[in-house]
Design a protein around this nucleic acid. Sequence first.
DNA 1: CGCGAGCTTGACGTTGTTCAACTAGAGTGG
DNA 2: CCACTCTAGTTGAACAACGTCAAGCTCGCG
Lengths: 234, 234
Amino acid sequence: MKDQSEIKDLTLCSQCLFYKQSSLFLSEKDIHHLEKNIYQLKFKHGETIFKQGDKSRHIALLNHGIVKFNFEENKERNLILSIVSAPKILGGANMFYRQRNLFSITAIGDCDICMIDMNEFGEILKQNGKYALMLFERAMEMFETSILNYISLANKNVNGRIADILLYLSEHVYKNQSFHLLLTRKEIAEFAGCSKENIIHTFSHLNDDNVIRTDGKNLTILDKSKLQMISRLG
Amino acid sequence: MKDQSEIKDLTLCSQCLFYKQSSLFLSEKDIHHLEKNIYQLKFKHGETIFKQGDKSRHIALLNHGIVKFNFEENKERNLILSIVSAPKILGGANMFYRQRNLFSITAIGDCDICMIDMNEFGEILKQNGKYALMLFERAMEMFETSILNYISLANKNVNGRIADILLYLSEHVYKNQSFHLLLTRKEIAEFAGCSKENIIHTFSHLNDDNVIRTDGKNLTILDKSKLQMISRLG
DNA sequence: CGCGAGCTTGACGTTGTTCAACTAGAGTGG
DNA sequence: CCACTCTAGTTGAACAACGTCAAGCTCGCG
């Protein structure tokens, strides 16, 4: 966990989506209790939000930014399980399953995150099942993307997986045809489950065929339907 | 969902693990309410418990038997996400996340399952956050195995993945060095994410090297440490 | 200017899939 | 009882996909 030197004015949290949703479910007393145990942090690109193997004491509410879920096998064998953008509840798997974190969560670019102490928050959950259910549903969304990635990985060839990833990033993360991808080629490879050379080769071909246009870390999808076809065939 | 012609005496459920655990959390009134909405079904090998794309109206409590989570891409491109044995709560992902089932759940061998109507049960959960949390933790266990499979698939070669699967089946599913595997070679391949010929070749080699002994569907692990080494090297 | 990290490219070898041929067992019908 | 067919399992060989390697490139930074 990052040091808390950058704690900001707590009133900021009253603007965040999580706070607004929570206020629909909780009593004024609980809201007040929550306010006392919530604080905002800012993370920069590459900073670790949760560390694999650590024991989480917090739930993280991603209010702004993009994060990756990365599994560290050993020095040279990493894996990106998923990439998600705000707003999301992070630490769901860690929050309810009382073991060490299965994977790390790392900032991609600047991230605004609200931290809630789990011990305090757990009490509120125990007393308010309806609220707990709402949070479960949100936390569950995270797993859907992981499972869909898994399926893509198991069933498709490299071209199909890369097409899937580009479509996913465009539609669900950056929400734009064109985006500035802060990941290295190696990291994209860790997401696609292939070598970095493979990513480079495939990007080159897609460039030649006018399906995408890459310019350093900027990436634009020119022909979405062709990308979808590659995904299907893969 | 299977037809309910085989509903058994409801008192049977009072013996099941789920019922016993629940009684620690719920009031007598809620327990009574639960009893009214719970019934036991028996599934045979290959029968579908939850169908991919369907909307679940039930939570399934696997009291006896083994099930697979299978994703059906198309006729010739299936995938087994996980295999788990009783006792487990099935339908967790479906229970809290109100969409169509992401994957099917299918019986491997005979299964005893208690079904609970979700609408009735949801009310109890909303009123009892502590109980909801307990159930959620159990449901989360399911995802851990899926994620570990994902990691194995992404990081290891075929030999390593097959070794992983054999160790997993032995330690977490059958809880025995020797087991009667009801899966076809094709299904094992769908679990390992490779071709059935690959499974057959690898099994042959492992047989030759006295690491395992296969006799039709019976499988015995002779040299666990060697299998663990193959898993690490993979 | 030199250095290092990340990127790019093509060649090469390994891994894994596909294909085809064969075997064994189980179910079917004459 | 014997074809027959169908399914699952097995084997090896050919081929394609993919990872590894090596070399050169670009860019930013000290």
